[in-house]
Write a protein that binds this DNA or RNA. Sequence first.
DNA 1: GAAACTAACTTCGATTCTGAACTAAGTTAG
DNA 2: CTAACTTAGTTCAGAATCGAAGTTAGTTTC
Lengths: 399, 399
Amino acid sequence: MGYKPSYAKTVKRTGPRDIALTEYSSSILSMIASGRARSRADLARTLNLAPSTITIKVNELMEAGLISESGSGSATGGRRPTLLELVPDAGFILAADLGAHHLWVGRLNLSGNLLVSEIRTIDINDGPEVVLPQAAAMMRALSDPAVDPPLRGVGMSLPGPVNFALGALDSPSRMRGWHEFKVRNWLAEEFGTLAVVDNDANMMALGEHTLRQRESPDSKVRQNTLFLKAGAAIGCGLIIDGQVYRGSTGAAGDIAHVQIPAAGDAPCSCGNRGCLETVASGSAIIRDLAAVGIDAADVNDIVRQVNNGDPHTTTRVRTAGRILGQTLSIVVNFVNPDVVVLGGGLSQLEPYVAAVRSQLYESCHPLATKNIVIEASLAGSQAGLLGAGQLCLRTVLAS
Amino acid sequence: MGYKPSYAKTVKRTGPRDIALTEYSSSILSMIASGRARSRADLARTLNLAPSTITIKVNELMEAGLISESGSGSATGGRRPTLLELVPDAGFILAADLGAHHLWVGRLNLSGNLLVSEIRTIDINDGPEVVLPQAAAMMRALSDPAVDPPLRGVGMSLPGPVNFALGALDSPSRMRGWHEFKVRNWLAEEFGTLAVVDNDANMMALGEHTLRQRESPDSKVRQNTLFLKAGAAIGCGLIIDGQVYRGSTGAAGDIAHVQIPAAGDAPCSCGNRGCLETVASGSAIIRDLAAVGIDAADVNDIVRQVNNGDPHTTTRVRTAGRILGQTLSIVVNFVNPDVVVLGGGLSQLEPYVAAVRSQLYESCHPLATKNIVIEASLAGSQAGLLGAGQLCLRTVLAS
DNA sequence: GAAACTAACTTCGATTCTGAACTAAGTTAG
DNA sequence: CTAACTTAGTTCAGAATCGAAGTTAGTTTC
């Protein structure tokens, strides 16, 4: 047997177009897909390669039919760049966003654009054996294998703590039957393709980050994003240097189950008492409103009531925002991100966003809030689906 | 003029040995210096280069007299690796650790080993115009230019928030005259060489991390270190992926000025009220002890009293540890490091370390503490000096 | 104590990537 | 409008890196 080089850099791509691409080719694809580079000159700068090298690689990729030129960008004092894009028809990605009560699936092209999507209600407690086949069926329904370009990968966002290396949930609370069920492997086998799964907050963070990266041209400097998902539950995802940060055991980003004084010893879904989530989450608001006779079935009801000007609900939402802001300020001080994005259902409410923002400005060190941007999510409810697609796309293109 | 490539990879080194070294040469030096790689095979794996390339580069560097072989390591089922080390005589580094009342300087060889050091008391409030020349004189006294190999760089640890890009302190509290004084430039000019400055907690974190990296052979997986400095003041440094993490504005790692309930509205040196530092720091302990008639001039006195079994002081120290642990748990949950190191004067006290540790285990999510190591600093009081030297060394070797 | 295996390191022809010079296509200032 | 400047992208000879096969030197197994 031979020598099996672990440093191997040359990648053979087999598939409809059988062409040998070198190491940097996949980086180029990733850069274009994620919006981190849009022209040859961009690529040279971002990847720290000679322009001449980029010319060669880009030509190869164009001949292989994987990327194409798409007009020219705006000039900045010189010749205008020729923009590059992934050829959308070179393949597609399926993504799914799984929640406690919803299942949202979508199809994306290789540029990471969501083409079609579909949603239905489910009960996560039916377990993976019931839910995953439902998801697979819905995803299949979004594509016609006879017509569509080949499926390149599947990404799924899961509503609990994910062991990324294992591709499974790790002791999720209130998700019967999901503990250590290997979701990634199941998907990979079911679709016969590459699959990725991650925690919903991480996925949303990545989706939002990618979107912002594309929207703004000066995005080169905004590479550290803290994404806070405030819906029925609270979750947090962190992007450092454009990548999802997962920490040592994959638990990074946990903020919901911090003990805070304002919570007293209210019991939490995690089994502990006095967690932030028992005060600042959508569920907590619903519980407190019920106690004073105001009926809200879910976060959407809260949103509706606040938009209708219900003073009681609005006050409660504002309080939740302020308390969340206090805890969040500790993390913002420590991580010092350039963007804090608020997502999840509650982020639709201006009073909530305003409360978090003002609390952050009040509690953080001035150096930490110097150039910070604190905003509601641009991706909105699509964040999870976009992120799942994006993570899958990055994995596909990097392999 | 001509084309000035920003992607330039070939580096000409001028100096006593005028030799052209390529891009990877500096990475190789960095890897060896920081202990991230110790043999050719290590280098190939760490840098993702072909073994054949490493052979060529290592030979070049050996001919240039910058590295040498230093015996062989232990085998792991095959031929044993030939260990490599930086030739200590190829140059040296001067490092300084500046505190509110002390100035500690040292000389390190290119392997990052501290050879000699000297300490004296100073008053930081005399301002940079007085203190820096003192530091420079002490550093000069540690080396004899007629005998010593050439000085390659100077590193200094500063006791306040540092704007790393500027090389200066940014609005430090209680440091008259230091705001935006360009310490790095001053040092670079004074010594006619490369200089780096950073915040003391960051420097200590790097020093400790490097030491641990060298001590343990399985260190490849322990790349995320959270270092907490608990002395008169409280500071925190974060190593992510073996590098100092500074965040977007360089403020990352701030934890001392988080508002906590236990602090009430005690005034803090930062101008705010109710900060963690007003309860859990050495100064806070001294202040509280004074209020009940126990006299302690500095952290050393606290250490002495606890070691002598003074029950009052010991209880107070334990309380400080517990309160610190509560706030720290939020950060540990979020960042999910593999090592938490306690440094600074208070870390010498087992009751303090034990209190922090048990509070962390109690307050953190089980996933975050699964494989975590929580320990007192191995580098002890040398951490800052070692880190300043290490950061300087890395910068020198990377340039 | 061979035989089989594993890991470290080297050699050398083949390939990839670079760097300098050049072309192309814009912006800015007078 | 033109001259000076800036940025984007290409060409090609030469330098840097790779990968396969081989050598060296250990460990493990029976």
